[in-house]
């Protein structure tokens, strides 16, 4: 059975205020709580994760086609978002 693991995130240049806030929180931790070096975290991005499972009758090629359609039509808004996905074969 094929599954698709999809990550939808913002395109470069689109304001991601949630990520900015998380980044600020991370780098403003008081000394001694996180290991040395966390202040060098340059950037945080946020996104959404989707896992899609297909029927056994769907082969890899079809799963890829369907996932791409789902991403283009529903899971992402192409005005502001981009997506990546990986296909994996799993046994039930």
């Amino acid at each position: 059975m094929w599954i698709a693991k999809v990550i939808v995130s913002y395109k470069t240049g689109i304001l991601d205020p949630e990520a900015k806030t998380i980044h600020n929180a991370l780098i403003s931790f008081p000394e001694g709580i996180l290991s040395e070096g966390y202040r060098d975290i340059n950037k945080v991005e946020t996104g959404k994760y989707f896992q899609i499972s297909f029927s056994d009758s769907i082969d890899r090629e079809k799963a890829e086609e369907l996932t791409k359609q789902a991403c283009d039509k529903i899971l992402s808004n192409p005005v502001i978002q981009k997506y990546t996905f990986q296909l994996e074969e799993v046994s039930k």
């Binding site: 689109i14 304001l15 205020p17 949630e18 806030t21 808004n77 005005v79 502001i80």
Partner: peptide, 11 residues
């Protein structure tokens, strides 16, 4: 309509 509405800048 063109464009998109994203999260308020101040969250």
């Amino acid at each position: 309509l063109p464009g998109s509405l994203i999260t308020n800048d101040h969250l």
